[in-house]
Amino acid sequence: MKQVGIFFGTDSGTTRLIAKKIAKNLKKRLGDDAVAKPININRVGIDDLLGCDSLILGTPTYGKGVLPGKPNRNTEESWFEFLPQLTAADLSGRTVALYGLGDQESYPEHFVDGLRDLYDVVTASGADVIGAWDAGDYEFETSRAVIDGRFVGLVLDQHLQHLKTDERIDTWLDQIVDELFAGDVTPVRANA
């Protein structure tokens, strides 16, 4: 059976909480064996990611559009330090879904820019990225994470729109679950 790996970068812990929500929702749909326990990217190596059949990668954006990591005033290593391993990896044929956290009120000119950095690295490494998300329900000035009116992955704002988080996760997973497993897992559907 195929398994999806969920990896995240965080400093405050919010991206970890979202990873747990995504995992719990996926386990209800697919069963426990299909979803690995979410892991902080600073606790793994590239082989851990390559050991999964498909990936969900999450990141917050800090300050003026940067990924978490020590150079960006975080207490621990994170995506910033992991990117060289990811850049050198061959992700050809691997399906990746992305999610990002940002603050559209405090950083409207750099909203979820870090998500684009992650997107650029995984696509350059050959991954097939799924899960683009409509940018219409947000108020921000600019975001590098928008391509053709859509974010490159699910976007959540836990400061301004936290009441929409659970519904957004559920809708996004409806959109990507079949692609994550390319038909190798029969999703458990409610009211089936």
Rank of each mutant, 00 (worst) to 15 (best):
N72F: 07
L83R: 06
P71D: 10
A34R: 00
Q3V: 10
K64T: 06
F80K: 08
G13C: 05
I46T: 07
K37A: 05
G136E: 06
L180M: 06
D113R: 13
G31I: 00
I169G: 11
A97E: 01
L156G: 06
I6W: 08
D174P: 01
L86E: 02
I22H: 05
E77D: 15
D178N: 14
K64A: 08
D170G: 11
A19P: 09
F7S: 02
D117K: 12
C52S: 14
D90R: 05
G183P: 06
T95G: 02
G9V: 05
Q104V: 04
D48P: 01
K2R: 11
N42H: 12
R16N: 09
L180W: 08
A135V: 08
G153H: 04
K21I: 00
Y99E: 01
L26M: 14
P38G: 02
A89P: 05
L98G: 06
T165W: 06
I6E: 05
S92Q: 06
P187K: 12
A145R: 03
P108R: 07
D134N: 15
K64S: 10
N40D: 15
R189Y: 12
L49G: 09
K164Q: 13
T87I: 00
E105A: 14
W79T: 07
P187W: 04
E141S: 13
G31F: 01
V4I: 12
R116C: 07
D157F: 07
V122W: 05
Y107I: 00
R29Q: 13
H110Q: 10
T59N: 10
T75P: 01
T14P: 00
D134S: 14
D184C: 00
S106W: 07
K2L: 03
G114L: 04
K2N: 13
S125D: 03
N191W: 07
I6Q: 10
T15K: 08
G69R: 12
A127W: 02
D174F: 00
A132Y: 08
G126A: 01
R43L: 14
A135D: 15
D117I: 10
L180S: 11
R29K: 15
K20F: 09
L55P: 10
G114S: 13
E179G: 14
F111Y: 14
F7Y: 14
G102C: 03
F80G: 00
K164F: 09
A127F: 03
T123H: 04
D137Q: 09
R29G: 04
A97K: 02
V185E: 11
S143W: 04
D113M: 10
V121T: 14
R144M: 06
R116K: 14
G31K: 03
H162M: 03
L154Q: 05
G102F: 08
S125T: 05
I18G: 09
